[in-house]
Design a protein around this nucleic acid. Structure first.
Lengths: 192, 192
DNA sequence: CGTCACCTTCCTAACGGTCGTTAGTTAACA
DNA sequence: TGTTAACTAACGACCGTTAGGAAGGTGACG
């Protein structure tokens, strides 16, 4: 029970301060235990960090799959637009996506390899999901301008990341300004 | 002389390891002096960091202006596309843009206010530059779909950031993959 | 021209504090 | 009885920072 709370707390601290900036002392204090007690659950800071990372990636991977299944009855446009709302809701509930974005962009140098090996499959999965979504929907809707679904998925990812990092950094108002600006243009470029 | 080298080196370290991850010890060693000698030039780590930041923002601001002036004779499409190449070249020459992107997204918590106060005007300037560019070019080219130039500029910024952070994190190959994927779609959405 | 004071820039030594980590112990529980 | 999860105490390493002094250059003044 404490182990789970410990993981959640650590994840929040890592998301907020980064690997180097997060302190075991403060994490323990937040949980309500002493610093050395962490070592009853994890082998050290690296272990705690990587476990938090695996946990965040796993959780978000299933959440992601759930979202794309739940929008199966919606139009392609609604599915893709709704993903932004989903991200926003998900991000306000917990810090997992912020954590993932942060360490994806700026991993601790000494754990760069391990981070990359965990992160890359995550984004690959994401792109595969999107590619499949685009292909399948287009079979019925016949709406896309190009049939290069992989490129479309990658472009969509680029736009979402540019928008979402804006939320992580500048808050919801700046995020919505960007989304409002970029979405009509992107969608117009995507469809016939 | 050493002061300038010190600043450049510090900037590189901050870009690579973040504020908390960068060590005065290692910075000094890279420069070829001892750690306390830093205090002959700067009041401390915060001062060094903020000075590096002001320097990077100032330099990049003028470089940016120079670029947009130098492309005055090119078409809008070439200007906007060329900006990506300019960014790439600029980034391989020094770490200033990487540094700026990093601290823009994840500033040290204790200096959040100061960082925001410096960064925001920078991005505002950037957006204003772009808005003006779009408006002026469209007056002669009559090519854009919408005359909401501010939104177009913001959308463009979103796409560039999404692409450029990819370069900072995943290298030039991933960057070019993204650019190739996103540019045709974005441009198609932008023009009539 | 010489010299004296001053400032800059570097140094060594060391400070107090925080870091992550380990050893050893205790209480609770299966 | 053995295991788990917490504790206290303390370790060595590194952190940013300060004190104090040495070397070198600069400029003023007799």
């Amino acid at each position: 029970m404490k182990a789970s709370l410990l993981l959640q707390t650590a994840l929040r601290h890592f998301a907020q301060h980064g690997y180097e900036g997060a302190s075991l002392q403060e994490i323990a204090q937040d949980v309500g235990i002493k610093k050395p007690s962490i070592y009853a659950h994890y082998r050290g800071k690296d272990d705690l960090f990587l476990t938090a990372m695996r946990y965040a990636l796993d959780t978000q991977k299933t959440h992601l799959a759930t979202y794309f299944i739940s929008t199966r009855h919606l139009s392609l446009e609604q599915s893709l637009k709704g993903f932004f709302d989903w991200f926003l809701e998900e991000s306000t509930q917990n810090d997992q996506l912020k954590f993932i974005l942060r360490i994806a962009y700026f991993p601790p140098v000494k754990l760069e390899r391990e981070v990359t090996d965990l992160i890359n499959p995550f984004f690959d999965t994401m792109q595969r999901h999107l590619t499949r979504l685009l292909r399948e929907r287009n079979r019925t809707e016949q709406i896309l301008y190009s049939d290069d679904y992989a490129s479309a998925a990658l472009a969509y990812l680029t736009v979402t990341e540019g928008t979402m990092t804006e939320f992580v950094f500048n808050g919801v108002a700046a995020y919505e300004r960007r989304f409002t600006a970029v979405w009509p243009i992107f969608w117009r470029g995507l469809v016939r």
